[in-house]
Amino acid sequence: MDINAQTSDDYNYEEYYNLEPSVDYGPCKKHQAREFSQRFLPVFYSLTCVLSVITNVSLIIAFIWFKSLRRALPLHMVSADLMFTLTLPFWAVYADSEWVFGAPACKIVTLFYMVGLYSSNLFVGCMILQKYVDMACMLLSSAKRKRALCAFLWLLSLLATAPHLYFVEAHEFQGQKICTNHFLHKHSWRIYMRFQMIVLGFCIPLLVLVFSTVLILRTVVRTTLVKRSRTLMLVTGFTVLFFVLWFPYSLVIFLHALQELHVISECTTSLHLDLAIVGTECIAFMHVYLNPVAYVLLNKRFWRKIRGRCSTPRENLLGASESTGTESTQDNAVELKAFGMYSGSESEGSNAERQGHFLPHAS
């Protein structure tokens, strides 16, 4: 929630409550931003939390059902999104009133929030890069290497969270308890963490996504394999989704950094940036439930498995014959024959059995 989301300091409630001098030598009142946040953010965080739990838990259940579909990076992506989701109820209460959970909870929630935020984006980027690696060189996609990569990404996210964890604290401000970054005179750290969010949370994952998309596109152009064209669709879909969700938020964080550097100083512009960070942050946070949905919808193999579980035996045979027809004429003939035997036995009367704020304001 904006209150704490922007790397927990970026968007702390001090910015909502503060009266900052403007170029007109008058107080820069930001009550509009705070009132909007109090009305909108609790509802948004609550709804996002519910949708995230439904989609991510459903994907985990699908991984349990279909062992052949389990992949390390998507599973870790889901874990990161759920870790991030666990903090949303705290931010919802905080946005509605004040921080009522105590000082230790402030640091713990910030830890889960920031690690989940960084790791989710990094896992998305590496998940798509792994698609190219699996396609180009199977030797580089061993289970041991994947486990090492996952451990590295978690460690990197934890290290990136260290500054947030150091500065964040619960204290009283103008009669209210807040949980936010407290820099005292170390304002350079505020700027550093904003740019860290832009680089590590957006630029690096986006570059990996674009790089992987270009490589897979080149591979698909050289071959007519249907499987590779499906991989391209998955990679392109995630790249577009990531850019749409995170570019507006990263741009507003950059503008906030310019404000910290006094490049932007007008009161009206500052108020608009406060409102913009709330809106773009909400768009970015939709990733917690859109990531698993996109993974299922853009992954045809995954979708066929789920659809097959919910279909009848006749539909399963038809689906199997259609899917294999594009890959192997011989397999298609065998399955059509099996379907004919099934239909014949059914016509003879045999019974066949039938069978889902940065701390909100993270920068």
Rank of each mutant, 00 (worst) to 15 (best):
R218W: 04
S321V: 12
V199Q: 07
R190I: 00
E281A: 09
E281K: 04
F211N: 14
K227N: 13
V210A: 13
V226H: 13
G237P: 11
S265G: 07
F254V: 01
A257L: 01
I306C: 02
M233P: 00
E266Y: 10
L258G: 09
L271S: 15
Y295F: 08
G237H: 13
H187Q: 14
R228S: 09
L217K: 15
V226F: 08
N316H: 06
Q196P: 12
L225Y: 09
L209V: 07
A294I: 02
M197S: 15
F254R: 03
V244M: 12
V226G: 09
P248C: 13
R218Q: 11
V240Y: 10
T231A: 07
A257K: 02
M286Q: 11
I191P: 01
G325N: 07
V221G: 03
F247R: 05
W303A: 13
L255Q: 01
F285Q: 12
F211C: 14
I264Q: 01
H256A: 00
A320I: 11
G308N: 04
T324Q: 08
S270H: 09
L234D: 03
V252L: 01
V208P: 00
L207W: 12
P248H: 14
L317S: 04
G319I: 05
T280D: 00
Y192R: 14
F211G: 12
I253F: 05
H287L: 11
L206M: 15
C203I: 15
L225N: 12
R301A: 06
S229N: 11
N299C: 09
M197E: 13
H262K: 06
T224G: 15
T224V: 11
L232W: 02
E281M: 10
I264R: 04
L258T: 02
F302C: 04
I277R: 14
L209T: 09
E260H: 12
R194P: 04
L318K: 11
L255D: 01
S323F: 08
L241F: 08
S311N: 06
L297P: 00
T219K: 15
L258W: 05
S250P: 07
L200E: 13
C310Y: 05
M197Y: 15
C310Q: 08
